[in-house]
Nucleic acid binder design. Sequence first.
DNA 1: ATATAAAAAGATAAAAAACTCTTTTTATAT
DNA 2: ATATAAAAAGAGTTTTTTATCTTTTTATAT
Lengths: 143, 143
Amino acid sequence: MFSKTCEYGIKAMIFVAQKSKDGSRVGIKEIAKGTDAPEHFVAKIMQELGRKKLVHSVKGPNGGFYMDQFDLQTSLADIVRALDGNSIYSDCVLGLKTCNEKKPCPVHDQYRDIKKNLIKMIEENTIGDFNNKLDSGKFFLVN
Amino acid sequence: MFSKTCEYGIKAMIFVAQKSKDGSRVGIKEIAKGTDAPEHFVAKIMQELGRKKLVHSVKGPNGGFYMDQFDLQTSLADIVRALDGNSIYSDCVLGLKTCNEKKPCPVHDQYRDIKKNLIKMIEENTIGDFNNKLDSGKFFLVN
DNA sequence: ATATAAAAAGATAAAAAACTCTTTTTATAT
DNA sequence: ATATAAAAAGAGTTTTTTATCTTTTTATAT
């Protein structure tokens, strides 16, 4: 579904949002531990998300990653697009180069609704949305 | 979503089903062309599906792959499991090692329904089901 | 029986994804 | 001003996936 890169990216973003509520910053090591991801790998991912302006960072002592109010509006879809591109929106589930209403693949019709819900799921959830739920132990980033 | 192996496998199976309606057999070259797949790669895939008894084959002149009435009952899910394993059934969409009702990941609840529909889609469609539709040009395996 | 055409099997190669290590840059506190 | 701690950048490695090539086996037709 999503690449490892994207999985780590989403979890890291949720983790940073959570930790930066009070204005503090989180280092890569803490992010890696808190989301059970390989440190250097998730560092690269955060770098990329920083370049794409989905998260802020500061270097040096007391530096780290953080999110402002605007960053909290980032949807899962924004992260997915930043890391995995548009394939989830555009690709045929059977890999046909072009697959559409006029020239559909064998499962095009049945996949249409599933895809719609998948896209809805990532579009409608913002990183900020998760903040409250995570506090109350309603879900987890590591098991 | 599915691996390339699985995409090619599904298309190949539909193609073979289609061609073996009249009891004839299809060679790998024809399968590869008919589904726009790399010949040697799809050969490996068909080999594996043969080993797992989802399709029949005969060697030698006039040989090739074919399906009997029983093979036509094969669901997409059977093919997916044979080639991609159970990950679509069991894996957390964010890659958590364990993610369930008691210890859910942040999108567990929302993904539950999507997953259910995805599984329904592959469980409920058999290879035989596609035979009629393909004839009438209602869908395509290549674009 | 023999030649042949096809899949099966085995080995290798190329590309992509996942992951790691090293060096450089830079913001901050002292 | 300087030391330091952190991210950024760059380069490299490993693993997995995708794809290809070669040899072997075997069913069939002649």
